[in-house]
Design a protein around this nucleic acid. Structure first.
Lengths: 133, 133
DNA sequence: TTTAGATTTAGAATCATTCTAAATCTAAGT
DNA sequence: ACTTAGATTTAGAATGATTCTAAATCTAAA
């Protein structure tokens, strides 16, 4: 039995489907390069450019999200719902968090900035359990 | 009368002091390249590498903070106190916000992630007033 | 004044990402 | 099935940000 669920029909090309599959099956958030390496195993001829094209496409279609902090390459996330991140300042480990952000804080931030809100997230920086020993 | 305040004695080298001055005097958050351009006006011989070295040094010493979102170059911030950011998804405009984050949210995030907390910030993405017209 | 360590410099190198142009695929209409 | 137009993929070049390297210079302590 395979743990990997079939990807519902999204009208994706073969390569975009592979990229999405890799991201969905990953235990952690992968970089474009890691996604390329794993995609090649499922679809040997795929090119790096296609991985980037697919990431852009999937992001715009709302199937994945891009996460980037100061340090190096972006990472990609298959969670579609709003959530937050914790990042380790020592090893770079990235962890998803679900924090219930009170409506009044969201409203205050929108009012303060005068921006038309699209998304809002909390980022915690610190030491992960391993690095904190 | 000069609006620019003297930088207190931090034991900085000439070039690090210039980089810090440029960041402190800036109206908005600058990229490393913009900082280099402006630093050259105050200290013509300064090199790009030194700007990067200085930025790293000043960041580690806690005098400035680096802000980076997916899109392009990092920006540097002289505010030392905790604060949050709003970023325009269309033009990239970056605005500082001061949001009062309830202690229980901070505690919950630390507990949830199991990280030893160093900092926490809120990031709002959306359209700035100009781009929203 | 010597010396060791830190800093600066210029330019090369690296890394992530985007662009380009040609080849290939796909779907719609014949 | 055949044509065509548009979208997609490919390989590799190009770009942009940042870091590295090695030599020169500065600084502070002995």
């Amino acid at each position: 039995m395979n743990t990997k669920e079939k990807i519902e029909d999204l009208g994706l090309t073969k390569q975009r489907e592979v990229v999405l599959r890799v991201i969905r099956d990953a235990e952690q958030h992968l970089t474009a390069n890691e996604i390329f390496e794993q995609s090649k195993q499922l679809l040997p001829g795929i090119s790096f450019a296609t991985v980037y094209n697919s990431l852009r496409y999937l992001k715009e279609a709302g199937h994945i999200a891009e996460i980037s902090f100061g340090n190096g390459a972006s990472r990609f996330d298959s969670m579609t719902s709003r959530h937050d991140h914790a990042i380790c300042t020592k090893c770079g480990k990235l962890v998803d968090m679900e924090i219930d952000l009170p409506e009044e804080i969201v409203a205050f931030a929108a009012e303060f900035s005068k921006f038309k809100l699209e998304s809002i997230e909390l980022t915690l920086r610190g030491l992960c359990p391993e690095c904190n020993k």
